[in-house]
Design a protein around this nucleic acid. Structure first.
Lengths: 217, 217, 217, 217
DNA sequence: GATGAATGAGGTTTCATTCAT
DNA sequence: TATGAATGAAACCTCATTCAT
């Protein structure tokens, strides 16, 4: 139970409550336990019985609040993707661009660090989304729409970094996503005990992005 | 059935047969169908009944050839990761480095294109491994060992690209992996209809890696 | 909701209120919705959740007013069978026999029409009783007792139609019941769109009963 | 188990096997137990667990042979209604009409006795069909089509009994059905201990039908 | 009087796996 | 080698019912 009090879980809970409204106590427990189990065993590898046990509630209680297991997944994952990813990311990027106007390296650095922080906070959910997005059409659709929207909103900022055509801006945006995802997977899944310093790694990546290997190393 | 004749499936089949020896016809069908289903629905989302139906064989026949469903997964995924990923990749990288000695950009370009080609050929398997690696300890262990080994073997080539310390070489290796994975997911999962040109995308990435944004665009 | 205002439902409601006393508004809604659902899906095929939804009330409200689902069924079905079937039928038959003394054909005709009218009015309940009587001992007991009592009370009228022995009177009574039930099922369940004229059908049946096929047709 | 050896169950089994082909032993047991339970408790009142227990097989075995509980019901009830009711009844009626040509009373008597015998033999199934027909659209559709077909085939025989118009023939056919059903319900459900003599009851009914009450009693 | 929340028991169905043939 | 038949365990979900508010 105490696990549930970590930042990672509270952040997801808040996002879900933004969509569901104030939730009954046992409904909250169901959400937290589901989040925990899905992240650990995957959606299909998690039984509703397990969720109920981990939440300390009756299995039937889950179904009072969510019509189906699939629905439970979507009602947990969607709000984070929907309400947090796009608006928060674009608002933040805009703000950072304003603060550090004229210093693109700093902007990029801060944006990357903030996105990595976000992924850390929502770590279990990132894992779930990553897993399910490969097989779940609904989740994929939500994700694609949001990412598309995000790009539209921060394209001007991307432009500040140099890419002159729309195509190149898209490429840069994609590459940035790939870099962040790749690094996040490394630090959380592949080598969680490596003693990562986000700052150092981001500095390396920013250097690479702006100056290339030749200048960097 | 005809789906099974695509390159993607034949390549996996070959890899599996390298480990299993020549397989009985229905065993091959089982492997192909399992590959297909796992890629579409994930391991847990696939029932042995579904595999049997898609293979046009009896469910029991699967268990004649594989002691369990989990074993079926590993005996499909492991050989590709084990026998193909590391030796093939390192041999190929070495060969390319020799061919284009003194032209690091060309080496990187060819290595990236070749790795992307490999991921395309083994597309369903890449999807399966990606999904299962998040929850399956066995597969994760195999994967990590292989990737570690691969780095050891091609570290000298990485060094040719500039990074001077071991730490920086690891970083570069990781970043490269992230870029390739990110791009592969884009072209196969997120926007499969986008009309991608691997050459152009790789050229952009190589440019970025060597010269950075400032010079590239 | 407006469905509930049909004669069929109001008649049952009245009968139930004769036993329950004036009912709270939501209790009435529960009764009406239960009647509706039981007739449509059968007792076992109806969940209390469905009843609550159709009534627009909370599931728990049903249990405020009725200790159990089974009780709900009996408290709806019993009054109609008990308070309406026997006394009303026998009173009416007696009255009709008095009115049309010496004209047995007319008496029978009016009795049959009136019973068919009754079954039409209580149509959903007839369906419920018919269904449940096949498996529900309680309801069967109530029904049998009432039908037995009814026969006792109208035996003299049956005698007017000709049957001389008790045995023959019983037979006639049974046959009459079979005819009415058979016709009612036809017009409501099997071919509800046939455009039935109760008068014409009853005239045919009365003709058959008194004169037989030879004379009738 | 021995219950299953009664004529009633063997007759249904035969009819089902005509549609299913030779059945595996446990499939037969499943059919017999389902028949038994449905007749006793109704479709919804019967759990698949109960069926399995009564059949002495595993619950999962039922679902190996029938995709769903609903399917099990239909695959038991439909063949009897479909393959037995219409062809058998019309063939038999035709044969009886030939045998007793010129003696309509005898024909009717024999037809009625034979239909009552049929209903006795298929008693559990008659009960199931009667119950389910009230709420199950599929079964109702099958039943209506068959009864319609039956009427078409034996209309000439009905004509022999007197009714001159098509409308009157239909009426007579319906009335006959009502009489038989009413009597069958009496003797099996309402008063099974009454000591019924089908012959005597049929004689009374035939008398009524041909001569009417006036002449009969 | 009414209800939202909760649940234990049980529903149908699916699962991976075994075995006789 | 291959399979049809079989199954115990467990899956997701629904049930009638209780209770605090």
């Amino acid at each position: 139970m105490e696990i549930f009090e970590s930042d990672a879980y509270q952040a997801v809970l808040e996002a879900v409550e933004k969509a569901e409204g104030r939730m009954a106590p046992k409904k909250r427990l169901a959400v937290l336990a589901a989040l925990d189990c899905f992240a650990e065993y995957g959606y299909d590898g998690t039984s509703t019985k397990l969720i109920a046990e981990r939440a300390g509630i009756a299995e039937a209680t889950i179904f009072r609040h969510f019509p189906s297991k699939r629905d439970l997944l979507l009602r947990i994952a969607a709000p984070v993707v929907r309400h947090i990813l796009t608006p928060a990311a674009s608002r933040e990027a805009t703000e950072l661009a304003r603060q550090h106007a004229g210093e693109p390296r700093l902007i990029l650095r801060e944006v990357m660090l903030s996105r990595l922080h976000f992924m850390r906070v929502y770590e279990p959910l990132v894992k779930i989304v990553l897993q399910e997005i490969l097989v779940n059409q609904d989740l994929r659709a939500i994700f694609e729409r949001e990412v598309g929207g995000l790009f539209q909103q921060i394209a001007p900022i991307v432009a500040m970094f140099g890419p002159k055509t729309d195509l190149d801006r898209e490429r840069f945006f994609r590459i940035l996503g790939g870099l962040l995802l790749g690094y996040h997977l490394q630090r959380t899944l592949v080598s969680p005990d490596h003693g990562w310093s986000d700052e150092e790694e981001v500095d390396f990546m920013v250097g690479l992005i702006f100056d290339g290997l030749n200048a960097t190393t």
